[in-house]
Simulated scan of single mutants.
Amino acid sequence: MSFVNKNLRYLRQQRGWTQKELADQLDVKQPVVGAYEEERAVPPLFTLMRIATLFDLSLDALVQDDLSKPTQKKKQVAKREVLAITVDSNDRENIELIPQKAAAGYLSGYQDPEYISELPKISMPMLPRNRTHRAFEIQGESMLPIQPGSIVFGEYVESLQDLKNGKSYILVTKQDGIVFKRVFQFKEHKETLLLVSDNRVYEPYTIKASEVMELWLVHSFYSKSLPDSIQSTSPLADQLALQLVTLHKKK
């Protein structure tokens, strides 16, 4: 059962706002807010994220909890020394969302459970419960046809030894911040990673493996718009050639 419509009315009234004032905050028209509150429409994901941010809530709490009643505070746990997570009231791991505006802060706060607990949360029931996932809002056009502003869902990878060549990853790096690329690593150059964009306008480049602080295997994404056209990615042979050429230039 979803409480989002009831919660929206409750939260607005708690702030003492009119529907028009809330609509202005959400950048929608007043009748849209009315439709949400009267359960004639359900807010799309991006609007839900705006509401959650506006009222300092997780998406799970906004959708699944009756906020007009007392709720149990979500606890925080540290699953690994290098990865801070939060869990819900059923002791299931949350999926934290890192919006573009929070990307810089994530670099310094990714190991801090208190910082992680303040990030928006997303509920994705279809994802495996026994694994750790995180969501990242991407920017730029280097991975077209995935559009800027899309949200990609990544599964936590504990070690670079588990990296699969040619797969798409979110890398949290010391120098370049949060990066979304296809990644290659070869036996003779374990200390170097090749990062390749699906958009061939962007040239591949290498980084040191030691620069990677977190690695997330991307397996799905959400976008509020469809791509204008489907752009094919580079064949594996092209990727291998780029790897060899790039590494040769580094020598």
Results as ranks from 00 to 15, higher is better:
18 T>G: 09
107 L>E: 11
27 D>A: 15
192 T>E: 12
231 Q>G: 02
227 P>H: 05
188 E>K: 12
199 N>S: 08
204 P>R: 09
181 K>M: 03
64 Q>V: 14
120 P>L: 06
5 N>S: 15
150 S>C: 10
214 E>D: 09
1 M>Y: 02
98 I>E: 04
56 D>Y: 01
36 Y>P: 09
97 L>N: 02
41 A>H: 02
227 P>K: 05
189 H>C: 07
214 E>G: 07
23 A>M: 12
49 M>Y: 00
143 M>F: 00
29 K>I: 13
186 F>Q: 15
168 S>C: 08
141 E>K: 10
21 E>H: 04
185 Q>A: 08
142 S>F: 03
250 K>P: 01
56 D>E: 14
122 I>P: 01
69 K>Q: 15
68 S>Y: 05
150 S>D: 11
165 N>V: 02
47 T>D: 11
11 L>R: 04
153 F>T: 09
229 S>W: 01
91 D>H: 12
191 E>F: 00
124 M>W: 10
150 S>T: 08
189 H>G: 02
112 D>P: 01
116 I>S: 00
40 R>P: 05
164 K>L: 12
212 V>Q: 08
63 V>D: 13
40 R>C: 05
238 D>P: 03
100 Q>T: 14
64 Q>H: 13
177 G>Y: 06
251 K>P: 00
145 P>M: 08
183 V>R: 01
227 P>N: 06
206 T>L: 14
